[in-house]
């Protein structure tokens, strides 16, 4: 617990984590307001953009946090100080993963909230008692984007008055403000008029985002295992290559013979990329979520076991 808490605290206090989360929220938020010529697919594009940003920026978050948790500890010597204490190497490795996982969950929740609101912002045809026509829910988009400067302002004041770390306070405030913004949206309809309490968001995004989060957790396990021997840039390159290979592995390797063996040693990321299932009112079945969860758990366990074995064999300097 102490190790996981330390890893989370160290990662969340790094400016890069706040910047990546900010980038994900801002890009997700402005996408539906700037996009043109969407051919009636506005909602889908906002949803796909949000989930794609969660996956790609999440990959960067997974690599930087895993690298901070292990590779940077090795290069800066804190790993040596830590391993001189009465904690086993396997426990250290798993504690680091737990910390990285908490950080990724925090990022994913921010990204999910932004995607839910961005999808609501996207233009659509409405028939309301007061109005009929195409509407873009700009007020929700503005509330979503305002969470960023508001969180930064709160963090600046807190930092000035109490010296608490800016980045972690800003992140926690951003998370709270995104939740608050979603709640506030529920009091307004899509035309921006006060209405009865109703979220009017596409909750089907939640399981799709959960699948992406599972992918990120598997990727974090890989990044942590790579970080036992590699520094940040090689780890990022290895993870990006793994992502690219895993996205096409079903097409390249699925079949019989030796290609089937290759398919089994590369995680198939397509299992976690299900936005297309939401087209035309579709849903992601619970049974699929369960099987994808088991697939992710299997990969995570295997990669962590390999990483812990590598870490036990490695020298701490």
């Amino acid at each position: 617990m102490a190790l996981a808490g330390l890893t989370t605290a160290e990662c969340v206090r790094q400016p890069i984590y706040l910047l990546l989360t900010t980038a994900a929220v801002v890009l997700t938020g402005i996408a539906p307001m700037l996009a043109m010529h969407q051919f009636g697919e506005e909602g889908r594009l906002a949803r796909d953009a949000g989930l794609a940003l969660q996956l790609t920026i999440g990959l960067a978050v997974a690599v930087t946090t895993a690298s901070t948790a292990l590779a940077k500890e090795r290069s800066e010597g804190t790993a040596g100080a830590l391993l001189s204490k009465p904690v086993g190497r396997t426990l250290v490795f798993l504690g680091k993963y737990a910390g990285v996982a908490v950080v990724l969950l925090g990022f994913s929740v921010c990204s999910l909230l932004a995607t839910l609101m961005a999808e609501r912002v996207s233009e659509r045809f409405l028939e309301l008692p007061s109005f009929t026509g195409y509407v873009t829910d700009y007020p929700t988009g503005i509330r979503l984007l305002l969470t960023i400067p508001a969180a930064y302002a709160v963090a600046a004041v807190v930092n000035y008055r109490t010296r608490r770390p800016f980045a972690s306070v800003a992140f926690r405030t951003l998370l709270g403000l995104l939740l608050a913004a979603l709640l506030v949206c529920a009091f307004f309809d899509r035309a921006g008029q006060l209405a009865g309490f109703a979220f009017e968001v596409d909750w089907r995004i939640v399981p799709a985002s959960l699948l992406v989060t599972l992918a990120l957790l598997v990727m974090a396990a890989f990044a942590l295992a790579f970080s036992v021997r590699l520094n940040t840039v090689p780890t990022l390159a290895a993870c990006a290559a793994l992502l690219a290979l895993g996205l096409v592995s079903a097409y390249l390797f699925r079949g019989n013979g030796w290609t089937a063996a290759l398919y089994r040693v590369v995680p198939d990321w397509q299992h976690f990329w299900m936005p297309d299932a939401l087209r035309s009112g579709g849903r992601i079945p619970d049974a699929y979520l369960t099987s994808a969860g088991l697939y992710a758990a299997g990969w995570t366990t295997a990669v962590l076991a390999f990483g812990a074995w590598l870490f036990r064999r490695s020298e701490a300097v």
Partner: peptide, 12 residues
């Protein structure tokens, strides 16, 4: 153990 350099977590 006190390491040669004071290897500490800089954000703590």
């Amino acid at each position: 153990y006190l390491p040669e350099e004071s290897y500490l977590y800089r954000y703590l």
